[in-house]
Design a binder for these strands. Structure first.
Lengths: 137, 137
DNA sequence: CATGGATGCGTGTATATACCCGCATTAGCT
DNA sequence: AGCTAATGCGGGTATATACACGCATCCATG
């Protein structure tokens, strides 16, 4: 195995690999990993604005705006106006809710499988380190 | 801080954050993190084919083909033919070499700064875990 | 209440990424 | 030599991602 000693490169490479796993697992439910993550955040936040949702996900606002539009096109979420007319509030539709429920099973399977192969202690340790690294930003 | 308990999401988020750091550091040298990584791999491998380079980087072949074309357009690398006329061999140009040397300083700075903030033990532990996770694929 | 700065968004542009399909070339077997 | 399968690659398409710019709206201060 050729392994880089650059943390950034290694992070990116592993993220790609793991993303592919989850993409495969979620393909049956018709969602990508990024889309799944978006819907999960939407589930937790109550009709956030695009800016707020982007901040919660650690994404560039314009990036999230485009990601949102894809899901809007599929009818999985809606964009509404707020009192402050600059804001556009994102909310999940019933179809999005159903799609997310579907995906959650596939996601659980992938999650479980990965944890079994990798070990739950390592998984926890890795998440803790990633958290900490992310918090430095 | 809202933190996901999904390893994949956390990996992707942290990768984005760290990538941004390195992108900022490398901007002066005129390279993105992905481009820098490509050139570094090219440095180690001797005129690999597109397929081999993609495999070494853990990238989809067609993805790498497109990334290569960007750098080819900047004159940082060249595409040549091999005995097997299906292969296209990628090799760094003098300009690419110079650009990479430039970028290496910025990269070292970023690397050092991150290690100082994060701690070298944690950094090593994180890399080890990422390696291991990547090896599962 | 008028105006200048702040805020929220969308768009233009560029790169990064993956999947599928088709073409050219090669290798292997008969 | 000839056919079939495998290999290497480019292009089409779609999503993901970021930055810079500009527009609309809001807010605070005079």
């Amino acid at each position: 195995m050729t392994t880089t000693h650059c943390l950034c490169t290694q992070l990116r490479r592993t993220a790609r690999g793991v993303t592919k796993r989850y993409d495969d697992a979620l393909a049956g439910a018709g969602l990508t990993t990024a889309q799944f993550s978006l819907l999960r955040h939407l589930e937790r936040l109550e009709s956030p604005s695009i800016t707020d949702l982007a901040a919660a996900m650690g994404l560039e606002r314009s990036t999230l705006g485009r990601n949102v539009r894809v899901l809007e096109g599929q009818g999985l979420l809606e964009l509404g106006n707020a009192v402050d007319q600059r804001n556009r509030l994102v909310s999940m539709t019933a179809l999005g809710r159903a799609r997310l429920d579907d995906a959650l099973h596939a996601w659980n399977d992938a999650q479980l499988q990965l944890t079994q192969k990798f070990g739950s202690e390592k998984r926890a340790a890795l998440i803790a380190l990633l958290d900490e690294l992310h918090a430095l930003e």
